[in-house]
């Protein structure tokens, strides 16, 4: 995996209307090829707006966004950019176009003008990759939320993108559906080297990311590995975001004088550290 940048956001400012509040303020970031990047932020922080700038659904007011070497404001490249940077959205019901699963997966390919036989091959592969082959002939309204989102992922995957942007794609799902969708994205990232930009307000979904960017009020408030970001318990709280339960517990114990080290995130790590201090064998 090379560390080549595949998305570059360069001093971007965005507002919905002339004179309205700026949703994004002079934001700059780079997404590396093959990376799993989580973008965390509360509602209204600007994270969804940022997502829509990444495949040219919105165009920056100032600055520029470059995806796989193409500037999103170049109208000739719009369709190429959207093919390279696929996007899945929040509401699973509102992004499925067709009345049958496999035909929905075909939708993007039909738009791109992919020949029929090639289309069939890609649909089968995409459904296989999200473990939905068995439901290929189902009607979308018979599927669970998690399954619908997996169909949406397959629809994007069939277009053979380099980047998948998930814009709060688990917000409307139950815990099982959320786990399913997140698992699929991590697997695509691991096995196919897919670059994933995962936008969420659920801290636990960012825990396994390679890198986290926390957005607040249209700017980048924190950036780093999950361990670096979640150690900042106080800052995260002022940004109205959660931290992992164990990080919070360790933090509150530390404040009461218990000498626990920084950077505890998981139950296993916590067990280990508490044991060092308390367990009978030590």
């Amino acid at each position: 995996m090379s560390n080549q940048a595949c998305v570059q956001v360069d001093h971007v400012t965005f507002q919905y209307e002339e004179g309205a509040d700026k949703v994004l303020k002079d934001i700059s970031l780079t997404v590396n090829r093959g990376e799993f990047l989580a973008i965390l932020g509360h509602n209204g922080s600007g994270k969804s707006t940022l997502a829509k700038l990444l495949n040219g659904l919105y165009l920056p007011g100032e600055g520029r966004v470059v995806v796989c070497g193409m500037d999103t404001s170049d109208e000739n490249e719009t369709w190429n950019i959207r093919q390279k940077a696929g996007m899945i959205f929040q509401n699973p019901d509102n992004q499925i176009v067709a009345t049958v699963v496999r035909e929905d997966v075909a939708f993007g390919l039909e738009n791109m003008g992919v020949p029929h036989d090639e289309m069939v091959r890609r649909i089968d592969a995409a459904l296989e990759a999200v473990h939905m082959s068995e439901r290929a002939e189902s009607a979308p309204h018979m599927l669970s939320g998690g399954q619908k989102q997996r169909v949406a992922i397959a629809g994007v995957l069939a277009m053979e993108p380099e980047i998948i942007i998930a814009d709060e794609s688990t917000a409307m799902l139950d815990p099982q559906g959320r786990a399913e969708v997140l698992e699929v994205m991590h697997r695509l990232n691991r096995e196919k080297g897919m670059t994933v930009i995962w936008i969420t307000h659920y801290m636990e979904e960012a825990a396994d990311a390679d890198r986290i960017i926390v957005i607040s009020d249209g700017t980048i408030a924190l950036e780093g590995t999950p361990r670096e970001v979640f150690s900042q318990v106080g800052t995260m709280r002022t940004l109205h975001l959660d931290v992992p339960h164990m990080a919070a517990l360790a933090d509150s114990l530390r404040k009461d004088g218990v000498p626990l080290p920084e950077g505890i995130l998981t139950v296993e790590e916590m067990t280990q550290e508490v044991c060092k201090l308390l367990c009978p064998s030590n």
Binding site: P175, L249, V267, E268, M270, V274, C275, C279, P280
Partner: peptide, 19 residues
């Protein structure tokens, strides 16, 4: 399909370690 709170998980692990 529910799981338990993080605190319960930690208690379990700590007990396994003899606490």
């Amino acid at each position: 399909g529910l799981g338990v709170p993080a605190a319960v998980k930690l208690c379990l692990k700590l007990r396994e370690q003899g606490l």
